[in-house]
Structures are given as structure tokens and as C-alpha cells.
Simulated assay, not measured.
Amino acid sequence: MSSRADVVRAAVALADAEGLDAVTIGLLARRTGVSARSLYRHVSGRDELVTAMVDAVLAAPRPAPPTGGGWRALVEHEARQEWSLYRRHPWALRALATTRPPLGVGVLAAVDRYFAALDALDHQSALAAYLTVSGYVQGMAMLTAAEADATRDTGVTNPQWWSTHLAKLAGAVDSGRYPWLTTLAQSAATQPTNLDTWFDFGLARVLDGLATYTNK
């Protein structure tokens, strides 16, 4: 490969297709038809490669932040950008949902934007608020990442899996022992929802809580 950018793009494509665990110097060399030695001319190892991958996906064009709405609109904007990142690249969650994330320029800039939105709070409160919001985003993103892994590993999509298992649940639901689940199943049949809908609901409640805290 002729450049570091080429190596990073190939690694991102590999992670998108097969997950972060698939990204090794050896496999990347085999998939791209170049020697591992040539890849090492661009990155010193896997850790540097993953950091560069995260920086690359964080550098993708993003919508401009809102100009009105105060801190809440800005924090919501950053949370939705983080959610969108994990939806596009589920592997990025594995790289970022840790107390020791890759500290490239992309991560530093993303965290700084959160803190800029929370600048009305003292530093410790802003840190706690950031961890609360980003932690919620990452927690919900775990479901999307797990689904991507399961679909890739089994070849069975989520709707296909549920269509098979709902028949097994029908007997339990119809037994009358679980009245709340019976009502939920009936509602879901007429008002299907998805993770994005649940994410929207939860994010609004998290921001409601922060609003109460900031106004105390």
C-alpha cells in the first residue's frame, strides 16, 4: 500500500465487515495482498492502527452543531453523533467503551466538544455529566454491536431470530401467568419499535435529569 491512509481505510473496511477482532497486521496483509513488513512501514503495530482507525471514522463529515437551545441542544447533538458513529461502525464501540481508549486527535476532539457543551458546570460535574451521557449512548450501542456480531457470525438477522423464537414464547405469554408481557406483545404487534426509538426516549430522559441537576 502506498500510504498510511490506504492502510487505515483497508483496516476500517475489514473491521466493518468482520469486527475489530479481525483486524490484525497479518490478516490485513493477506486481505490486501501486501506483506506485513510493508504495513509496518506505516504503523508500528495494532494499537497504533486501531487509534488511526478511530481517528479516521471520527474525522468523517458531521452535521454542524445547533446554534440555539443552550447546553441541552449541544449535548444532545454530541450524543447523537456518537450514536451515529456506533451505528455506522459497531466495532468502534469496542475501541472506545473503555477506561483506556485510544487517545488520538479524534477522540480528544470528541470529548472536548462534550465538555464545551457543559462549560456551565464545574469540572467534576461536567466530567460526571459527560460520563453519564456517553455511558448511556455506549450502553445502547452495545445492543447494536451485539446484533451486528450475531448476524455476521450466524447469518441469521434479528427479525429472523425473533420469528423463530416468538413461537416458543407464545405458550408462555398465552398461559396468563405473565399479564404484563401479554399486553406488551399485543402492543408490539401493532406498534413495532426499534433501537433508534428506544434510544431517543432514553436520551431525552437522561437530558431531563441533567436539566434538573443544573437547575437545582
Rank of each mutant, 00 (worst) to 15 (best):
Ser44Pro: 00
Arg152Lys: 10
Arg46Gly: 04
Leu118Ile: 15
Gly45Gln: 02
Val7Lys: 00
Asp149Phe: 06
Val57Gln: 04
Gly26Asn: 01
Leu28Glu: 01
Asn158His: 06
Pro61Met: 13
Asp122Pro: 02
Asp16Gln: 08
Gly69Lys: 11
Thr214Cys: 06
Leu14Asn: 04
Ala110His: 11
Leu108Val: 15
Pro159Asn: 07
Leu39Val: 13
Leu74Asp: 04
Arg87Tyr: 05
Thr193Lys: 03
Arg46Thr: 09
Arg88Pro: 00
Lys168Ala: 14
Arg4Ile: 08
Gly104Tyr: 06
Ala52Gly: 03
Thr132Leu: 14
Gly19Asn: 09
Glu78Asp: 12
Pro192Cys: 12
Glu48Gly: 03
Arg94Ser: 09
Phe199Arg: 09
Glu82Tyr: 06
Ile25Glu: 00
Val173Ile: 14
Leu20Asp: 03
Asp149Ser: 08
Leu118Tyr: 09
Arg4Pro: 00
Val137Trp: 02
Ala189Ile: 04
Thr190Asp: 02
Gly33Val: 15
Ala13Asp: 06
Pro159Val: 15
Leu28Ile: 11
Ser38Gln: 07
Gly155Phe: 11
His77Asn: 09
Thr98Lys: 09
Thr212Asn: 03
Tyr213Val: 14
His89Met: 12
Met53Ala: 04
Val137Asn: 05
Asp196Leu: 11
Phe115Asn: 05
Gln191Met: 12
Ala117Cys: 11
Leu108Trp: 05
Asp47His: 01
Thr32Gly: 01
Val8Ile: 13
Ala22Arg: 12
Leu108Pro: 00
Thr144Pro: 00
Arg9Leu: 06
Leu118Asn: 11
Ala5Leu: 10
Leu143Asp: 02
Val34Leu: 03
Thr144His: 01
Phe115Cys: 05
Ala148Phe: 12
Ser2Met: 06
Thr154Gly: 01
Val43Ala: 03
Trp91Thr: 14
Gln124Asp: 10
Ala150Tyr: 05
Ala141His: 07
Pro63Gly: 10
Gln191Tyr: 06
Pro102Asp: 08
Val107Arg: 07
Ala172Tyr: 04
Ala17Tyr: 02
Ala109Trp: 05
Leu143Trp: 02
Thr32Ala: 05
Thr24Trp: 01
Gly68Arg: 12
Ala148His: 10
Ala188Trp: 08
Asp200Gly: 08
Thr183Trp: 01
Val8Trp: 00
Ala15Gln: 05
Val34Tyr: 00
Arg113Tyr: 07
Phe115Leu: 14
Val111Phe: 06
Thr182Arg: 09
Glu82Asp: 11
His42Arg: 04
Ser163Trp: 09
Glu78Gln: 14
Ala15Phe: 05
Thr164Lys: 04
Ala146Ile: 13
Leu96His: 04
Ala59Pro: 00
Tyr130Val: 15
His123Trp: 11
Thr132His: 08
Asp174Asn: 12
Pro192Leu: 13
Trp83Cys: 06
Met1Lys: 07
Val107Gly: 00
Ala188Thr: 12
Gln81Trp: 02
Trp161Arg: 07
Val54Asn: 01
Leu184Met: 13
Gly45Lys: 04
Arg94His: 03
Asp200Ser: 13
Gly209Thr: 15
Ala13Gly: 07
Ser35Lys: 12
Gly19Tyr: 08
Ala15Ser: 04
Ala22Gly: 06
Ala110Val: 14
Ser2Asp: 05
His77Glu: 07
Asp6Tyr: 04
Gly45Trp: 01
Asp196Tyr: 09
Ala172His: 05
Ser125Asp: 12
Ser84Pro: 03
Val137Gly: 03
Asp200Ile: 15
Gly70Phe: 07
Ser2Arg: 10
Thr212Arg: 08
